[in-house]
Amino acid sequence: MAETRGAIAPYRAILASRMRAQRSYRSNFRIDLTSSFLVGFVELAEVWVLFHNVHELGGFTFTQILLVFGLADFCFSIGDMLFGHCDELTKYVRAGTLDVFYLRPQPILLQLITSDISLKRLSRAAVGLTALVIALVINDIAWSPSAVLLLSLALVSGIAIFSAMFVWAAGLQFFLINGAEMTNAFVYGGRYAATQPAAVWSRPLKVVFGFFFPMAFTAYLPVIALLGLPGPAWLPAWLGWCSPVAALWAWGMALLCWRWGLRHYQGGGG
């Protein structure tokens, strides 16, 4: 017990210092919180604007899509808070400061993950959580122990899937350096996809965001299982129960890419 505490102590010290550092530029931190809240709010507004024009989209009403949005956006925000700074890897590689990580007696991925935590994302997660809670109340859900289990599985797996996307992207940064936008297409595009009713997707999109990057598993599939709606072709409702499998797949891919990238890395030459 004392040993594990000793092992996590350095990570805790770093995280605590990072939290203090963010709050020290006070006016910026307040603006950060506000803008992060607005990000979530505007993303919800974009969904609302579409549904304001039509009654139903991809077999979903606005009340129903609110559930998908809330679940997806909440999970993404938490993943972003814990893992989003993995995007910074490009900076470390370019500046050669990644070599410092090699000097410490801790796994590099763990060091990268615990190198920061974006507290500002909390306000965005609040938007997602509010949308989720409202949607859970106003939607017609047959509550039962299995429904609660389905929702809990979806929440945990959703956070895990989005977190894995950040690690996956970080692994590929070793090769891309300046091409970070290539992975952003799938990390942030993935978030955008996750809030959509997947029934509107073309077949290639279903392959890419339904299965390869399992975005449909973070919200859409659990929601149709929860509401008892029929799924579109290729995405039957029972898949909503398989979100943990999708999370394992995402993390497997992420860790593989990370290992591959780390082996490729030759050092900053310092």
Binding site: L176, E181, M182, T183, A185, G189, A193, S202, L205
Partner: peptide
């Protein structure tokens, strides 16, 4: 990379 991002968001 930018083009890949543009196209992905475009299809969505």
């Amino acid at each position: 990379g930018g083009l890949v991002a543009n196209a992905t968001f475009g299809f969505l």
